[in-house]
């Protein structure tokens, strides 16, 4: 295939597929904990870290990771102290992140570099970024696999999980760090504004079809990989922006699944 003859496209497929595997793993827990907006909050906050990194001359992905981790821990702390304000805590952190990113971006000399983090630049992946995404993906996959059942129980019923003897606090902390790491790495490639959609849409699609938690997780990964591959092909042949195309394909698929499900249930 002509598309795969280009090194930058091969890299785009590798990075896209790796992220399409790990983002729904984080996404399914986030969605089931009813914290779907957390991806938005973290990705927006990551932009503040990117701007800070560019101003200070530090690797912007590192800046994004630190900002994401701080934001994620703040949300978790507020959620724990004031559980009734869980949704609001996300909105507050997101606002703070956007505000900070907006102000700091004014001091960034290379605006094009900063803008590439908004919608990502999956077709311009450097060696270091490829290595970073690969390392992060394998780390996230390994930790997710090892804590899979505990994460499932915490998402199902945090109080019951605590009473059953699961170290809820520690696992929530590890999950928060995993989320921050995933968002910050994905921000550079698929884009900060796209990563949160990738966290929610494949999971929402999978929930229309899954007959168990495990099956829903596999479907979510399958959908994310499918959207990424179709998105990259469409973007290449139609000359579209890859990040946005991937998300739009996902949204279309979700609308089709919703409609089909409704049609089937009303037809009975």
């Amino acid at each position: 295939m002509a598309i795969l003859e280009y090194d930058f496209m091969r890299r785009a497929f590798i990075v896209g597929i790796l992220l399409a595997v790990i983002i729904p793993c984080i996404g399914i827990i986030v969605v089931l904990k009813r914290l779907s907006l957390i991806g938005d909050a973290l990705s927006h906050t990551s932009l503040a870290g990117v701007a800070a990194g560019l101003i200070l001359g530090v690797n912007p992905i590192l800046g994004a990771a630190v900002a994401c981790a701080l934001a994620a821990l703040s949300i978790e702390a507020i959620r724990k102290k004031l559980p009734q304000y869980a949704e609001m805590s996300i909105a507050v952190i997101m606002s703070a992140g956007i505000g900070l990113a907006g102000v700091l971006s004014g001091f960034v000399k290379n605006a094009a570099n900063f803008n590439s983090f908004l919608f990502g630049s999956i077709v311009a992946i450097s060696d270091l970024e490829l290595l970073l995404v690969a390392a992060t993906s394998f780390a996230v996959m390994a930790v997710f696999l090892l804590l899979y059942k505990e994460l499932f129980y915490i998402a199902l019923d945090e109080k019951a999980a605590r009473l059953a003897g699961i170290p809820v606090k520690k696992i929530n902390f590890i999950f928060t760090i995993l989320t921050a790491l995933t968002v910050s790495v994905a921000a550079r490639t698929v884009g900060a504004l796209v990563v949160s959609s990738m966290m929610v849409i494949p999971v929402a699609c999978a929930m229309q079809l899954g007959k168990s938690f495990k099956q829903t997780l596999f479907y979510a990964i399958g959908f994310a990989v499918l959207f990424t591959v179709l998105g990259l092909f469409s973007a290449y042949y139609a000359g579209l922006k890859p990040g946005g195309t991937i998300v739009l394909i996902g949204v279309c698929c979700l609308v089709v699944l919703f409609s089909m499900k409704k049609w089937i249930s009303t037809g009975k």
Partner: peptide
Amino acid sequence: KSLVTEGRFPATAEEIVLANLYP
């Protein structure tokens, strides 16, 4: 009431019961 019974949590009866054996 819990999230399980309020929403459409994608888990089977067996997965939910098994969860209490995780510790």
